[in-house]
């Protein structure tokens, strides 16, 4: 069933890609240009999606005859929790400029550890040490400008 839907999704996606590609300009001296490859890829998606959907039509009919394990019960709570890491990534993206990379990472790790029932002191310890270590490793030694957090640099200048 889900394969059938995914096949449909690929077909629609491929169609959109082809449509968008038609707006690109053509190359001098050639009849095609930057639209050629996206169109071919879109075409591939449509055909592949179609094949996937069609082969599953047969199985859809069979599904009534024999029970299938996958459809049986779906763990919606688990699905929701599995989105938590993504939510924390979004949190990092939005908050790191202000709170700083280290604090955001520590907070995210703490939440993730606690939700799986790790002990509080252990989670705190690990998340603080790891966040600080990553921050120092990346910004000091690998010269990657991780956001240090405007919150702290401002309070600092005032404090001094």
């Amino acid at each position: 069933m889900r394969d059938f839907l995914l096949g449909l999704a690929f077909m629609i996606g491929g169609g959109v890609v082809i449509a968008v590609a038609q707006t690109y300009p053509t190359m001098p001296a050639l009849q095609f240009g930057p639209s050629l490859f996206p169109s071919l890829i879109g075409g591939g998606m449509v055909i592949g999606g179609l094949v996937l959907a069609l082969t599953r039509v047969g199985q859809l009919k069979n599904a009534f005859a024999g029970p299938r394990s996958q459809v049986a019960s779906y763990d919606y709570r688990g699905l929701l929790i599995s989105l938590l890491p993504c939510a924390l990534v979004v949190f990092y993206i939005l908050a790191s400029e202000f709170l700083g990379a280290a604090l955001c990472m520590a907070a995210s790790m703490l939440v993730l550890m606690l939700i799986r029932g790790a002990r509080l002191w252990l989670s705190l310890l690990v998340s603080i040490i790891v966040a600080a270590a990553i921050y120092v490793l990346f910004s000091r030694y690998l010269l990657i400008p991780l956001p240090e957090g405007t919150l702290f640099s401002q309070t600092l200048t005032f404090a001094w």
Partner: peptide, 21 residues
């Protein structure tokens, strides 16, 4: 409490390397 401690600890580690004006 834990959160403010956390902020304090991390804040400290970030603040120290910055020199004065």
């Amino acid at each position: 409490i834990t959160r403010s401690h956390l902020a304090g600890l991390l804040g400290l580690s970030l603040l120290l390397p910055l020199p004065a004006m």
